[in-house]
């Protein structure tokens, strides 16, 4: 590619990506004002994380630990994606990756196992 081509490609890219980002934002704010709660929308968790200090002493449930911690590094994988036995392996690995305490890991595993089986 010569210099002129590169500059043209850069321009196209910038315009394209700006347009894509705007569409994303606009699409969503439109939806927000229209406020039509679709079934799909209702099915999703309206998760709001309190900006308070995390208190390890408070008795967090497995589902809470899962939804708060497992989103940090990657997209949340649905409990139904794996069998309870497979979750046993994964949580043992993710306890290491996520730096969970043993208790947190046991709670997450109990939640994932029961959610996977149903």
């Amino acid at each position: 590619m010569n210099l002129r081509n590169i500059q043209t490609v850069r321009m196209i890219m910038l315009v394209g990506l700006a347009a894509a980002s705007l569409t994303l934002m606009a699409g969503c704010s439109n939806n927000g004002t229209a406020g039509k709660p679709t079934a799909k929308k209702a099915a999703k968790p309206a998760a709001i994380w309190p900006l308070a200090v995390q208190d390890p002493a408070k008795n967090e449930t497995g589902a809470q630990i899962w939804s708060e911690n497992c989103l940090r590094c990657h997209q949340l994988r649905s409990p139904s994606q794996y069998t309870p036995a497979q979750w046993g392996v994964i949580v043992q690995y993710m306890r290491l990756k996520a730096g969970l305490t043993g208790e947190q890991a046991r709670k997450v595993l109990a939640f994932l196992k029961s959610a996977s089986a149903h």
Binding site: A20, L24, P37, K40, K41
Partner: peptide
Amino acid sequence: YQPSMCGIKYLDKMMV
């Protein structure tokens, strides 16, 4: 940024 909760097909799966 991903508008995962916007409820609009395809758009909710896009990330910039």
